[in-house]
Design a protein around this nucleic acid. Structure first.
Lengths: 344, 344
DNA sequence: TAAAATCAAGAATACGTATACAATGAATTT
DNA sequence: AAATTCATTGTATACGTATTCTTGATTTTA
């Protein structure tokens, strides 16, 4: 491996000029530039990133604290990674689901991010509440820029990019109400998930304001999975109150519920309307069911988050400290007025 | 930020002792050990990773060259990450799907991995053939250890961990043959995918040896997606030869085909048998169809690959330079003898 | 008991880079 | 033509660490 001294010697200049050329080619004369450039090519020289980091204190490396789960997370990662690459930054995922990570978070060591100054900043994608609050607290007195993704925090001044799940919940309720529905069900995702809670809160608030509060027996437990929702729905079917409209925390839950309902002889949308979340076209087209749902701006979440972190890192003004992204409602055939109205 | 000198001063020892303590506590007297330990705690000192890397030439950081796609890839990542963490290594994903990555691969710069000595080694998860061969070539004269995952290469001496897709293809054919089937269809995944090709090759070879070669009109194009397979199958239905057994490159393809077949009045397994790949329990339970399939040892792929890389990095003997992992056949109700035999 | 061997810890140095400072020469102004 | 400014390059140094070499102290052996 060659270094800047070797390049300098071969090019007949000082090592300072080589460094200057690397930092900003305009800092040197065209003559030196070409000489250095040629020497670099000849020696196949590469900048030593560790030395650069040691000297400047900037690693051009950020951490993404995120669980390594399905496609939702990898979509975000992909968007983040691409956005960061535009300004020469790299990204390491610190899996918040690994066996060690939990212990690390609780021992207040803020994961291994603190390994020296290796990481310039962080994006945090919280999962559940317990450890996450700890992690956020640790991030706050970490001393480096960070951005929190997809988690609505009341604390002001914290840079965050969120998806407006609350508004989506209200929107779902509004849709149902405008069709004339009066008897609702809500199917939870994992209750730990802030997104799930926000969707519920919006749904509940809108209904409450319409004078139709959502009692506990109208809330079904779930875990975002079709299979579980299906089994659970079957097991409590007889105890279910009358309903004509169902809002589920995500598409698989909605379809799991649909399956159980069909086995009981109900049809959607004839007997009840259904709205899911997080448009899964593959799934619903395979089942051949036109499920109304919401589309989340997942890629934009990653892009905006990464851009915000980049701005913070370069001490550029961050337009708004908190960005809220809206969801898109996908209207499909699973919506209809309640049966009572239809027959009238 | 404090450094070893600060710690040394506070502890009343030399900075060399601090470094020694950090490297191996047995290198110093218990007395200095406690003094240093206390000073470290007081100053909240952290080792500077860049300086350590600069000095030692080891970054304890490996790269994972992989597309950031769905759950298959994030499962592998999670396994890799956890395994590496056991020996203190970290992992950065270099997305081989990003806009820059393709250009980088083709310009022979081996992605940004070469950024100085920042990366000690790499795991490579190839996707399609074109750029991948280039990347592999570059890895070979990179000078650092690397392991190739899930891509069967004939070149000997290259460390790789593969899943035996070829054998799985043969196994599927054997199953069909033992039930008495004689008319087959194969549904391709993306032809670029080595896994898809291997599954086909195994299937084809087994049938050929049984005297039942698989002609081109019995191979359907596909892209691993249910929706596309469904549409394509419908579009060529009338031109399809007689068949009683179908092997699809993955579960969604199989279910997409199933949907099209059902719309034509066929039933599985009454009229034909079906085998998928990469067990997707959620999906098949939601559809309520017992699809026979194969389960891939995805986690083990990541674990073995990471372990192999760790062994290479630490110059430990690597047991076999190439590890082949078998797949597990999941027998379910989509299998039956062909209708001709049944009626006899 | 003296000499040799072992050991712990301090002093000094190098890894590759970026940059403050000094020096040189050219270009501009008076 | 002399004085001043400015741009460009070279020299020297520091970032934080690991490690070699050296030194001084302790233990072992003859």
């Amino acid at each position: 491996m060659s270094n800047q001294r070797d390049v300098a010697k071969l090019a007949g200049v000082s090592s300072a000029s080589v460094s200057r050329f690397l930092t900003n080619p305009n800092l040197v004369t065209p003559k030196v530039a070409v000489a250095v450039e040629r020497a670099i090519a000849t020696l196949n020289y590469r900048l030593d990133h560790s030395a650069q980091t040691l000297k400047t204190g900037k690693s051009f490396h950020v951490g993404l604290l995120s669980p390594a789960l399905g496609s939702y997370h990898s979509n975000i990662f992909q968007a983040v990674e691409n956005q960061l690459a535009k300004e020469g930054y790299y990204c390491t995922i610190f899996d918040t689901l690994g066996p060690d990570s939990r212990r690390a978070a609780q021992s207040r060591s803020l994961l291994p991010i603190m390994r020296g100054k290796q990481i310039d900043g962080a994006l945090f994608l919280p999962l559940n509440t317990a450890d996450d609050d700890l992690t956020i607290e640790q991030l706050r007195d970490w001393g480096h820029p960070y951005v929190i993704l997809d988690r609505n925090l009341a604390i002001p001044g914290i840079p965050q990019v969120v998806i407006d799940n609350y508004k989506a919940g209200r929107l779902a309720a509004k849709k149902f109400l405008s069709l004339g529905h009066k008897d609702f069900l809500f199917i939870w995702g994992l209750q730990d998930f802030p997104s799930s809670r926000d969707r519920f809160a919006g749904f509940r608030d809108e209904l409450r304001e319409a004078g139709l509060p959502l009692s506990f027996d109208r809330q079904l437990e779930g875990d975002f999975l079709a299979s579980h929702t299906y089994r659970f729905t079957r097991s409590i079917w007889t105890r279910l109150p009358n309903f004509t409209a169902v809002f589920a925390a995500n598409d698989p839950s909605a379809l799991g519920f649909l399956k159980a309902a069909r086995e009981e002889g109900l049809d959607c949308p004839r007997d009840f309307s259904l709205i899911g979340f997080d448009d899964d076209e593959e799934l619903s087209s395979l089942i051949g069911f036109p499920l109304a749902t919401f589309r989340q701006p997942v890629a934009e979440l990653g892009i905006r988050g990464a851009q915000m972190l980049l701005d913070l890192l370069q001490a550029r003004p961050v337009d708004p400290p908190k960005v809220t992204l809206g969801v898109e409602f996908i209207e499909r055939g699973s919506l209809a007025p309640p049966p009572a109205l239809k027959s009238s």
